[in-house]
Computed example of a mutant assay.
Amino acid sequence: MIPHAALQTAADRFGTPLYVYDASELDAALGRVRSAFGGAQVYYAMKANPNLTLLRRMHAAGVGFECVSGGEIARAEEVGASGDRVLVNGPAKLPGEYAAGARLGATFVVDREEEVGLLPPGSRALVRVNPALAVSTHDHLATGAAGSKFGVTPAQAPGVLRALRDAGHTALGLHVHIGSAIRDAADFSAAFARLAELHPAVSDLDVLDVGGGWGVGADLPGIAREARAAASVFGAELWVEPGRYLVAQAGTLLTRVVGQKRTGRPFLLTDAGMTELLRPMLYGAEHPVTALWEGEPAGTWDVAGPACESGDLLARDVLLPAPVPGGLLAIGEAGAYGASMSSTYLTRPRPAEALWEGGEWRPIRRRETPQDVWAMEQGLE
C-alpha cells in the first residue's frame, strides 16, 4: 500500500487528477494468480490498462497479452511480445488486425462461424463458447449471457472446430469468458461445467482457455480448482486471461476538492470526474474513497466531477471529514478501466500516471495538454 504521505507528494509533484500505481501490488496480484492456477499460461487482458510501462513489466515476468484491437496488437509488438504470447480476440476483427496478428504469429480466438474463412492461412485458433449463463455482475459486463454478442453456442462449437481443421488451421481448443467483476465462484463452475459437457464430442483439445473476470476478493483457489478439473476432462493445457484482477487494486485516482454545495443532496466537487473515471457512470461501479486530510467523520457526500452531466458522480454517500478546499481524495481500485477508458470529452486533457516503486515515484505518462487534444485537427483545412 502506498503511504498517504507519498500520495500527497505525487499529487504535489505531478498535479491532479492523477493515476498512481503500486508496483508491489502489481507483483502480488500476479503472484496470487500463479499460485492459484499453477502452471497455467497467463495472458493479460490489455484493455484493462494498456500503459506501456506496465506491459513491459508483465512481459518481463513472462505474461502474454490478450488483444482486442489493432492498437493493442501494436502495443504487444512494441514491448516485444510475439508468437504464443499473443492472443487476438474480439467479435468483429478487421482485415488489418488479422494481418497484424499473423505477422506476430498470434493465436486467434474465433468468435463466430464465418470467421473460419477470414483467418490468415495456417492460423492457430481457439473457439470461443458462449455458455448462455446469468452471472452476478452488471449486464454490460456479462459477456457469457445468452443475449451477449460474444462466442458461438455450445452446439455450434464442435462444427467450428472441425471447420478450422478442414481449412488447414490448427484448432487448439476452446475459450470461455463470462464477464468481468464476478465474485461468485458458482458462476465460473457453471461455465466450466458447460464446456465439460462438450466432451467427448470435442475430445482432442490441446488448450482450454477459461478467460478471467474474477472480481477483487473472489475465491481464486476455488475457481482455479474448477478450471483445472474442466481442463483435465479434455487432457488440455490451461490458459487464463486476467485483466482487472491484475491491476485494479494497484491503481488509485487522486483528485482534489474544488468546493462543495447542497441542492437536494450534499455534493463534494472535485477536479476528476467521468472523463477520468467512467466506471461509476457506465456500470454503477463502486470505488472506495479515502480522504487524505485529517478530521473526524462529519457527514456523507456525493463526490461529483466537473462535467455538465448529471451522471458525473464518482461515488455516493461517502462518509468524510469536514471538506477542506484543495484536500486530496484517493479513489481506490482504479487501476483497471480507469485511465484506459478516460476521454478528452469537453477537451479535458487526460491525466498523468505515475508508478510507486522502491520507495520512489516514476512518471509513466505525462499529462496531456489542450494542444495535444486538438493536434490531429491541425493543418487539415
Rank of each mutant, 00 (worst) to 15 (best):
P349S: 12
E353S: 07
P323T: 02
A315E: 02
P349M: 05
W374S: 13
P363M: 00
Y345K: 15
P363D: 04
G335V: 00
P323S: 07
S342M: 04
E333W: 00
A304F: 03
T369N: 12
D302W: 06
D372R: 00
W374L: 13
G338K: 09
G358I: 09
E353H: 02
T369W: 09
A307H: 07
D312T: 08
A336C: 11
I331K: 00
E333T: 05
E333F: 01
R348D: 04
T344N: 15
A339E: 03
Q371W: 11
M341N: 02
R316C: 14
L320I: 10
E353G: 03
V303A: 09
G311N: 00
Q371M: 13
W361N: 12
R316H: 13
D317I: 06
L313E: 03
S342W: 01
S342Q: 06
I364H: 03
V324H: 01
L319G: 10
E360L: 01
R362D: 08
A354M: 05
E357R: 04
S340M: 10
S342H: 01
R316Q: 15
W356D: 03
L329E: 04
G327P: 06
A322N: 11
P325Y: 06
L346N: 11
A330V: 00
V318Q: 03
V318E: 05
Y337V: 08
R316D: 07
T344W: 06
A307E: 10
A322F: 07
L313D: 02
D312H: 10
E353M: 11
R362H: 12
Y337T: 06
L346G: 06
R316K: 15
E309A: 15
R367C: 10
T344Y: 07
D312N: 14
G305L: 01
V373H: 11
L328Q: 02
A336K: 00
M341H: 01
A352Q: 05
L319D: 15
V303D: 05
W361F: 10
P370H: 13
W361G: 08
M341R: 00
A354C: 13
P349H: 11
I364F: 05
P321D: 09
E368H: 12
G327V: 09
D302R: 05
P370N: 11
S310I: 07
P351T: 09
W356E: 02
P363I: 02
P321C: 10
L319N: 14
L346Y: 14
W301N: 10
W374G: 15
G338T: 11
Y337G: 03
A304S: 12
G338F: 12
R365E: 04
L328S: 01
G326Q: 13
M341S: 00
G359Q: 09
L314K: 14
E309V: 14
V324L: 04
C308D: 15
V318F: 07
D302Q: 13
T369C: 14
D312F: 09
G305W: 03
G335R: 01
V324Q: 02
T369L: 14
A307K: 05
G326F: 09
P306A: 14
E309N: 14
R366N: 08
E333Y: 04
V324S: 02
Y345S: 13
T347G: 06
L346R: 15
V303N: 05
D302P: 07
E333N: 15
S342C: 10
G311M: 06
P325T: 08
W361V: 08
V324K: 03
E333R: 05
A354L: 10
A339I: 09
E353T: 01
I364A: 05
P306H: 14
T369F: 09
L319A: 15
S342D: 04
A352S: 14
S343E: 12
